[in-house]
């Protein structure tokens, strides 16, 4: 059964336990600045949105890597950075249109979510169930992926896109 992270912004309170769990698992330190998952806050709307790599099929990051430092984990489907192969060129950071691959100046490498090898700490740490690790069929990720695939639409002068094309999320 393919598993995926399910993110439900409406349940998020902005406590950042996920960011601490992630950084602690991956870096051995409580440090949201080094977390692979990030909660974005929308003060004006009173909303919070946890957000991380969708492990998208396109794997823009992986294909953009010039040295094969990003590989698919066959067990989880996650795209993982091989730290000893990564040269820190950052091409993946601009290639990922979701903005979920970050360059980490301290190590000179990039970091991204690897689903903690199938037991994601963010999900375990979330007190409200805003982040869960569930059967992929049950996630909004399918919809995010569908969106990701269709998003780069043809240029307007050839095929004017309808604004709603990108808005496939349910409210």
């Amino acid at each position: 059964m393919a598993m995926a992270l399910k993110l439900e912004p409406e349940k998020c309170t902005g406590c950042l336990q996920c960011e601490m769990a992630c950084s602690y698992e991956n870096e051995g330190v409580f440090n949201p600045a080094k977390s692979r998952i990030k909660v974005f806050s929308f003060h004006e709307e009173g909303k919070f949105a946890p957000y991380t790599c969708t492990q998208c099929e396109e794997a823009w990051c992986m294909h953009a890597c010039p040295v094969e430092a990003i590989v698919v984990d066959m067990a989880t489907g996650s795209k993982n950075v091989l730290e000893d192969v990564c040269v820190g060129c950052k091409v993946c950071t601009i290639a990922c249109p979701f903005g979920t691959v970050n360059y980490e100046p301290d190590s000179g490498k990039v970091i991204k979510c690897d689903l903690c090898g199938g037991d994601p700490w963010c999900a375990k740490a979330c007190p409200t169930g805003a982040i869960t690790y569930v059967d992929e069929a049950d996630t909004t990720y399918e919809r995010m992926r569908a969106w990701a695939q269709q998003a780069p639409s043809a240029p307007a002068r050839f095929n004017p896109p309808k604004p709603k094309e990108v808005q496939v999320f349910e409210r």
Partner: peptide, 11 residues
């Protein structure tokens, strides 16, 4: 999150 610039442009 610099890649989001690509996302914003390309979507």
């Amino acid at each position: 999150h610099v890649g989001v610039l690509r996302g914003l442009i390309q979507t």
